[in-house]
Simulated assay, not measured.
Amino acid sequence: MMTDTIDTSSKSLHQRILDDIESNILSGRWPPGYKIPSEQVLTEQYACSRMTVNKVLTQLARAGLVLRKRKTGSIVMPQNSQSAILEIYDIRDEVSALDKRYHHGILARTIRAPTKAEADNLSLGPRRKLLALTCLHYADDKPFCLEERIINLGVVPQAAEADFADLAPGPWLLDHIPWSAAEHRIAAEAANDAAAQTLNIAANTPVLVVERQTWRLEETVTQVRLTYPGASHAVTARFTPSQRLLNPA
Rank of each mutant, 00 (worst) to 15 (best):
L245F: 03
L131Q: 13
D7K: 01
R70N: 13
L226M: 11
L130D: 05
D90C: 03
A237N: 08
V76D: 08
A97F: 12
K55E: 08
H233M: 15
E94S: 05
A84D: 10
A63H: 05
C145A: 13
A61W: 00
A202Q: 11
I75T: 15
L42P: 08
V56H: 07
E22C: 11
S10K: 04
E147D: 13
S27W: 00
E148M: 01
K11P: 00
H137F: 09
L226I: 00
A188F: 12
E219F: 01
Y228N: 09
E22L: 12
A187Q: 08
A162D: 11
P31S: 11
E161H: 14
I36L: 12
F239N: 03
N204W: 10
I36S: 15
I21A: 03
Y34V: 03
R109F: 05
L86V: 08
M77F: 01
T198Q: 01
T58W: 06
K11I: 00
Y89M: 09
Q40F: 02
K142T: 15
I91W: 09
D163N: 15
L136P: 13
E161I: 05
S242E: 00
L65F: 07
D120R: 14
Q158G: 05
A108S: 08
T3H: 06
S9R: 04
Q79L: 11
S242D: 07
P114W: 02
A84T: 07
T222S: 15
A132F: 14
R62F: 10
L60C: 06
Q223I: 07
T110G: 01
P229L: 06
R127K: 10
I21V: 14
K35A: 11
E148H: 05
S12Y: 01
D140K: 04
A181Y: 10
I151M: 03
T115I: 01
A187F: 04
H176A: 11
V41S: 13
N24G: 15
A139N: 07
A237H: 10
D7T: 02
M77S: 11
R216M: 00
A202H: 05
V56N: 10
D90E: 14
V53I: 14
Q45L: 13
I91L: 14
Q243R: 09
E118G: 01
N200F: 01
S232C: 15
I201N: 02
A117R: 12
L208I: 13
E87H: 08
S27T: 13
E219I: 00
F144A: 15
D19A: 06
L136V: 06
L18Q: 13
R92S: 12
E218I: 01
D163P: 07
I36G: 10
H14Q: 06
I201H: 02
D175I: 04
G170C: 02
T227R: 04
A187D: 12
I88E: 09
Q15N: 02
